[in-house]
Design a protein around this nucleic acid. Structure first.
Lengths: 213, 213
DNA sequence: TTGACAACATACTCAGTAGTATGATCACAT
DNA sequence: ATGTGATCATACTACTGAGTATGTTGTCAA
């Protein structure tokens, strides 16, 4: 009773999340190297001390934002792969949820896009290097979720593509594109998001040669 | 005679181009802020003196790379708009040439992608600001070339999309995608490029709802 | 009460980098 | 031959920004 597990999401964890949020927005706006730790601190109205208390380095902070972004993607998409819909329907639902993530958690998803290549170049400690490899792996696992349904759908004859690797790259670039150009309208937020999501998904699935629903 | 105009592309201009080439590759690999002028100089086997002799600042160098990239795009695509093909056919040809630019001049096109937003944030002199606005304008003029054919093709009923702005953004993101993931194979270079170009173009046009040729 | 530790703020160090000032070399015109 | 300007290299300055060392405050357990 009164064990530490009961207040798992209290002040310290909230402080971490607040930092991650601010860091995501900073990285989104200025990119990794153009963002200074002081920038993030200023956005929070605090000093570097707070950030370096929770994160070991700038690269660690970036990696944490990346990891959280990927976790949100998995949480939204992975359950859909366990339903008993057709591969085509799964692909459509997965694409829709993926794009929804792009517009609802855009700062984090932009960091995921900028991604690991950025972290890989430059001097890294062995532990940081291992962490980067794990993050790369998680992204590969994520895209593999889509790849699997794409192959099944192709076998079913509902989509056509030549090279699977190229098709995956183009499809993801297409579905991810809102992280670059989407700006939420003040009014009609949900309706605006849904409209964008539907157009992007349609474009992507049409790109794969899928017939309209 | 022997006027200066006769030797327009002699040593000094070649030196400039050599710098632009190296700068493009550096910016492509590490991004704008992570690239130092010394990096570019090192790649050329020279020192900063040479670079600052030809370009006033790091931002000027970046802008020059951007400008050259856009010029190559216009040179490849703009002539096609003057042919007397159908809007659909024009769109196909323009997309093909555009993607060809992405794979053949990738470093420059990556800089064009990173683009002007990057330059706009941060302190700029009034002249630099004007130059940035001009570059933004040139990119808008370029996308307008495609937009025009998209509208005609929609009127012809050969493509379908809801919002023109969204469709343009997604289409361009799709056609530009090779700047992120394309890596030339050593052997069969031309054949490899053509295959990628064809798949990307097909994806993009299918995304617009265009029927297969 | 007190000691211990979490959660920061403050005040530094130090390496890297944009930009400059100046010197060296060479071509070329007069 | 000589001055002149273009084309660089060398040697600086000034500043930003990552990371650290240390001080301060609150909290909580014994």
């Amino acid at each position: 009773m009164g064990s530490p597990a009961l207040r798992e999401n209290s002040a310290p964890e909230n402080s971490r999340l607040e930092i991650l949020q601010a860091a995501a927005e900073s990285f989104e706006q200025r990119g990794f190297s153009a963002t200074s730790i002081d920038d993030v601190a200023r956005m929070l109205g605090c000093t570097k001390g707070r950030i370096y208390h929770h994160f070991g380095s700038k690269a660690d902070l970036f990696a944490a934002v990346f990891r959280l972004g990927m976790e949100m993607n998995f949480a939204a998409v992975e359950p859909l792969t366990h339903t008993d819909a057709s591969a085509t329907e799964k692909l459509r639902m997965m694409a829709e949820e993926h794009v929804r993530q792009m517009v609802t958690t855009k700062p984090f998803q932009r960091v995921v896009w900028d991604g690991v290549e950025l972290l890989m170049r430059g001097a890294l400690t062995p532990e940081q290097r291992d962490e980067c490899l794990r993050l790369q792996q998680s992204r590969k696992r994520y895209s593999a979720l889509f790849r699997a349904q794409m192959e099944k759908a192709k076998a079913d004859g509902t989509v056509q593509y030549d090279d699977l690797s190229v098709a995956t790259q183009v499809l993801f670039t297409c579905l991810n594109s809102p992280v670059f150009w989407y700006r939420p309208r003040i009014a009609d937020l949900r309706k605006d998001q849904d409209a964008v999501i539907e157009q992007v998904v349609r474009f992507g699935l049409n790109g794969l040669g899928m017939k309209e629903a």
